[in-house]
Design a binder for these strands. Structure first.
Length: 752
DNA sequence: GCAAGGTC
């Protein structure tokens, strides 16, 4: 049997359909889809089975003994043995079963570095059960009959050097990431769910966000002034113009000019011109994400939707770097799909063209074609956001074949008492591609009918006080674009890296804002392990991977060098351990400050009770016992937004895989909660106030005895006792005492 | 419980 292995199930299904003389039979081998067909007859009969993987089916990790963060020193991970283990048991089992049967294997994974490694991983599993089996490799850039037939008639050989290059990346990422994550987390005392992660891609990305925030913090705004006038023609039409000194840095100068302005403006010059903007290039993942982001979808959401459109056959594969349609793609046929349905008029218009010449982007790769619509969808069969994304992909695809959009521009030069004013206008002449792709269209700025030398009436003049703004925070789409420019991450991982920074509570909000913890982590790493915070680490890695792929250097040599570098980093870290602990913990402390206590004015902080539950407490404790509750689970992020009533910072709760919960001001939130509790109680029949201590729910004989020893003999005395002191004296929890006190009060929760 | 890269 001839076994063909692809990177994913969908590729297996489509390749089998192309190669099989009649439709292939779908079978299941240990729960995995396998497509079988036969070529030829009699003696020359050749059975074929095509199976799809699910990306990497094995992964690398340290051995179990290294799992204990407290017992195993971070540095020990650098030279620890690394093992390869299955991460997808079902597929590994299926490969073993099929591998035994095979008399020939063809690796048909994606045509890129990771694809080569994934293919070798599969090959290694097959060779364990069938060591002598011959194998080859096919490379294709699109799954079309033409491309697949061509690839399979000219198979090549597996590139083990390229796979080694990919493997070196895995090892370096694991060793650096795991060792530094463990070191920083231990130094900060953040273990368990709260660990502080470090990585080749995430740390430089986080550092971009932190650097931008630092620029904003040191930014000193400079005041400036603008002068605008509103003008009126004889016919009574109005438009506005601005002084040709756009920004006056000197207020006196601006005021002098402003005072000079009279009631008449002379139109000195009208300059007409045309400009055109070129149609956009085909969508790759980054281009798609940023377009989706500009219509209000987060990168993670846009990718999730694209993924589902792809699995349902509406759009092509959404993870691609390519911005050039491959020759094998029949573009005309793809447009003809839309000659019915809601995009009919657009498709018809394109098909009228004698020649379809698409735009080309800068990146041309072999892995997959750019994203294009694969089939016709009905609006009714998609969810609202899915339709939004689908329509975006369809319109973008159309736009890449359309002509430029042209504008008529008009620039006016005016004079008011010898002061020069200017006004710019533009009118869309020919919509071109913008008709197909009507997103983010600049508006027409039109002037009334005007002629040179015309005198206009100044009906309003104003001088505006303004100040220069700090550089803006990055939006998620912008961040993904910068990551691509810097070579950080891949098309499939960039949005995941950003999601990771959110779920680790390193960043919050949109545009993206770092927490104080991030400042502390980035500063520590920049000082003692600068390599990991810079895109250069990825660049160096890419260079080394190229050398490995070209056979100029061995993988082991690269790994050895990398480990040596990390040893040096750890020497620095160990030398400065005390300083690192101090600065990390100072940063972490700042993220715990909520504001000032309304009772005593000291700092309110996020604290932990002895039993581990979190609450907001006063730093003046035990002198001040003010406290507010916090949710049991989720990461707590203190945002920079403050409550107008209480002055406390708003709080956001982050749970992995869930939407963040904006709790708002913790004091307002608690007051609200009390209100609803009271309403609930009001609806319930009121409980009678207990008469003696023993009547209180949860107080037995033994407790009553202890309370008596502590001098509490009546219900009233218990209600008024200090819960913290009392809890200490009778050795119970504060929470218990407080519930008794609520019972003393007939079940009513006291106000703050 | 640690990374980043595949895929779903």
């Amino acid at each position: 049997m001839h076994l063909i292995v692809t990177e994913k199930n969908i590729a297996a299904r489509r390749i089998a359909a192309i190669l099989a003389p009649k439709s292939p039979k779908k079978e299941r081998v240990s729960g995995v889809d396998v497509y079988r067909y036969e070529l030829g007859k009699g003696k020359s009969r050749q059975e074929t089975a095509v199976v799809g993987l699910s990306g990497h089916i094995v992964g690398i990790d340290f051995q179990k003994e290294y799992n204990n963060w407290q017992k195993v020193d971070a540095r020990a991970l650098i030279d620890a043995e690394i093992t390869t283990t299955p991460i997808n048991r079902k597929i590994v089992t299926a490969l073993r079963t099929l591998g035994k049967e095979a008399d020939r294997v063809t690796i048909a994974t994606d045509y890129d570095r990771e694809g080569e490694l994934i293919g070798v991983e599969a090959l290694n599993i097959i060779k364990k059960v069938n060591p002598e089996v011959p194998f080859d490799r096919v490379r294709y850039s699109a799954i079309t009959p033409k491309a697949i037939d061509a690839a399979f008639t000219n198979p090549t050989s597996v590139d083990f050097d390229l796979a080694d290059a990919g493997h070196s990346r895995q090892v370096i990422d694991l060793v650096w990431g795991a060792a530094l994550t463990r070191y920083i987390s231990l130094a900060a005392g953040r273990l368990g769910k709260m660990f502080l992660s470090v990585g080749r891609v995430q740390s430089p990305t986080l550092s971009l966000v932190v650097d931008r925030e630092k620029e904003r913090n040191i930014f000193v705004p400079t005041p400036y002034w603008e002068i605008h006038v509103e003008l009126e023609t004889k016919a009574g039409e109005t438009f506005s113009a601005q002084h040709s000194t756009r920004r006056f840095l000197d207020k006196e100068e601006a005021t002098a000019v402003f005072k000079k302005l009279g009631k008449k403006a002379e139109l000195k010059e009208i300059e007409k011109g045309t400009k055109s903007d070129l149609p956009p290039t085909p969508f790759n993942t980054t281009g798609f994400i940023s377009a989706a982001n500009s219509i209000g979808l987060s990168p993670a959401n846009a990718m999730r939707i694209a993924e589902s459109l792809y699995t349902n056959g509406y759009i092509s594969y959404p993870r691609t770097d390519n911005t050039v349609y491959p020759e094998t793609l029949d573009l005309r046929a793809q447009i003809e799909i839309f000659t019915e349905g809601p995009f009919k008029e657009f498709a018809d218009a394109l098909l009228e063209k004698a020649e379809l010449v698409p735009t080309r982007g800068k990146k041309e790769t072999t892995d997959h074609p750019p994203i294009y619509p694969a089939s016709l969808a009905k609006e009714s069969e998609l969810k609202e956001e899915e339709w939004k994304v689908y329509e975006l992909v369809v319109r973008r695809f159309f736009a890449t074949f359309a002509g430029p959009s042209t504008w008529e521009t008009m620039r006016l030069r005016l004079e008011i008492n010898a002061e020069e004013f200017r006004a710019n206008g533009a009118r869309l002449l020919e919509p071109g591609w913008r008709w197909y792709y009507p997103y983010n269209v600049p508006e027409d700025r039109l002037f009334p009918e005007l002629s040179e030398g015309e005198i206009l009436k100044v009906i309003k003049k104003e001088m505006l006080d303004k100040e220069t703004q700090p550089p803006g925070r990055y939006g998620q789409g912008r961040l993904i674009n910068i990551m691509e420019e810097l070579g950080l991450g891949t098309k499939a991982t960039r949005h995941e890296i950003i999601s990771k920074l959110y779920s680790r509570a390193y960043i919050h909000g949109n545009p993206v804002q770092p927490t104080n913890t991030s400042f502390a982590v980035v500063e520590t790493l920049e000082k003692y392990s600068p390599t990991i915070t810079k895109p250069d680490m990825t660049k160096l890695l890419e260079e080394n991977m190229d050398l490995i792929a070209e056979g100029k250097i061995k993988e082991d040599t690269v790994l050895e060098e990398s480990r040596e570098m990390l040893q040096q980093v750890f020497s620095e870290l160990d030398k400065n351990r005390d300083k690192i602990i101090e600065s990390l913990q100072a940063g972490l402390r700042e993220d715990k400050i909520i504001g000032n206590c309304s009772l005593c004015g000291n700092e309110l902080m996020i604290r932990r009770s002895k039993r581990g539950s979190r609450f907001i407490g006063c730093s003046n404790y035990p002198n001040c016992t003010f406290s507010l509750p916090l949710p049991k689970s989720g990461q707590i992020v203190v945002t920079d937004k403050q409550c107008e009533t209480h002055g406390l910072h708003h709080i956001r709760i982050i749970n992995a895989g869930k939407r963040p919960w904006d709790l708002g001001c913790p004091q307002c939130n608690f007051i609200e909660w009390q209100k609803t509790q009271k309403e609930k109680q009001a609806q319930q029949p009121k409980k009678e106030k207990p008469k003696t201590i023993k009547d209180i729910e949860g107080v037995g004989k033994a407790t009553a005895g202890k309370l008596e020893e502590a001098g509490i003999t009546s219900v009233e005395a218990l209600a008024e006792a200090d819960p913290i002191e009392l809890a200490k004296t009778i050795k119970t929890s504060v929470k218990k005492v407080k519930t008794w006190q609520i019972s003393c009060n007939g079940g009513i929760v006291e106000d703050l």
